[in-house]
Amino acid sequence: MKYSEEFFKEVCNYLGSDLDSPPCQLLKEHLNDNPNCKAFIEKIRRTIEIIQAADACEPVPEDLNQKLLKCLNLDVPKSDLNS
């Protein structure tokens, strides 16, 4: 199937939107009969997931909050002391 350039401009717009948003989902349904476009969108989705996963692996320095509160001359909140 050959899509028009205008159609792909719309795809561009949606690719900048939430991939789970209703317009994007609708678009995906239309693209389902084109395996190349489908693979492209899936790669974009997996790119985001992989980078999110990599970000989650990045540890925050253990003493970050301690140093921060000291610098701001603040105390640990009582609620945190109790936990």
Partner: peptide
């Protein structure tokens, strides 16, 4: 922008299954 001509006409290879543990 994505090269839509390439996407629609030349084919887009599927990525091999990727174990997410690679990010570790």
């Amino acid at each position: 922008d994505p090269d839509f001509d390439r996407i629609s006409s030349e084919g887009t290879r599927e990525w091999p299954s990727l174990d997410f543990s690679i990010v570790k």
